[in-house]
């Protein structure tokens, strides 16, 4: 059993939980995910690891209710309760984790986080920032009440740019528009990473392609086991079938077939709607 030590609503729908999982905390690296199953009858839900503390033996996950299982996780579990299963870390760490200090020295990273995807940007930005790499972070949401992780990012990057669709905080517009504006002002980046809804990552990729910035995206596909066994997470990358769980989750955005990936992610929409109506 995996005990929930801390639970906090970050905005009206997004929930942060710190969970006891010593083995995962010891092994986790930025970019990886885990699978959580709340109880015997729940689904296996893949969630990107939003932070880890090796000494405390904890990992942080951030959940937004979409299906019945995620709703149960947020509604029914409180501090002190335990999840039946937490398995991970899964997938490959971000590519920069294996770069040498020399390789990292000349890098200037920009991260674009959208919605729930903002949280998993945090361990990546932190990792690079701690190593002295230039990091800018763009966080986007519909309005200022939905912005998450603002305080955390203040200490984990050089510049934090908030943008909202309605202009209630920071830049008015989406994250990719903010990026294009920054570049137009003279900012330059060697690498970009976008994490968020697939549609956002698709547009971030289009922008970066235009700006000539290499971009990595974190593919949050459907999964069952998360270890390469089922193939539910398969997607086309450079015309080849890849499994997000073992070949990813991060891929070169310019090679990903986003339209196919979005269509595949909607595979169980009818079942989900039915279940949510139950």
């Amino acid at each position: 059993m995996f005990k929930i030590l801390e639970k906090r609503m970050l905005n009206p729908t997004i929930c942060k939980m710190v969970v006891e999982a010593p083995r995962i905390a010891r092994a986790a690296l930025p970019g990886q995910f885990l699978i959580v199953r709340s109880d015997e009858k729940g689904e296996r839900i893949p969630l990107t690891i939003s932070d880890f503390d090796r000494e405390a033996g904890t990992v942080t996950i951030v959940v937004q209710p979409i299906g019945l299982s995620t709703r149960k996780m947020v509604d029914d579990y409180k501090e002190g309760d335990s999840f039946a299963d937490l398995a991970g870390p899964l997938g490959n760490p971000s590519d920069f984790v294996s770069m040498s200090p020399e390789e990292l020295a000349g890098k200037r990273y920009v991260f674009i986080g959208g919605g729930l995807g903002t949280a998993p940007v945090y361990p990546q930005a932190k990792w690079l920032h701690e190593r002295g790499v230039a990091v800018d972070v763009i966080v986007g949401a519909r309005n200022k009440d939905l912005i998450i992780y603002e305080d955390e990012f203040r200490g984990a990057c050089d510049n934090l740019y908030i943008c909202t669709d309605d202009g209630s905080q920071g830049f008015k517009g989406v994250g990719t528009a903010q990026l294009e504006a920054l570049v137009a002002e003279g900012k330059s980046y060697t690498n970009a990473v976008a994490i968020g809804p697939m549609i956002m990552m698709k547009f971030a990729t289009l922008s970066c392609k235009k700006l000539g910035i290499p971009i990595m995206v974190s593919m949050n596909t459907l999964m069952v086991d998360g270890t390469g066994m089922c193939g539910a997470c398969r997607l086309s990358v450079d015309g080849k079938t890849k499994f997000a769980c073992v070949d990813g989750p991060e891929f070169d955005g310019t090679l990903v077939d986003f339209d196919e990936a979005m269509r595949r992610n909607a595979q169980y929409k009818e079942e989900e709607a039915l279940a949510n109506g139950k």
Partner: peptide, 30 residues
């Protein structure tokens, strides 16, 4: 990669391990 193409592993894992054939479990199967 069309929707509706599954590996037998996925289909069977959903049904067997995740008990999708039972109404009291949450995992979907089609």
């Amino acid at each position: 990669n069309y929707n509706g193409v599954f590996s037998a592993n996925e289909f069977l894992t959903r049904s067997n391990l995740m008990k999708a054939y039972r109404d009291d479990y949450l995992t979907p199967i089609r």
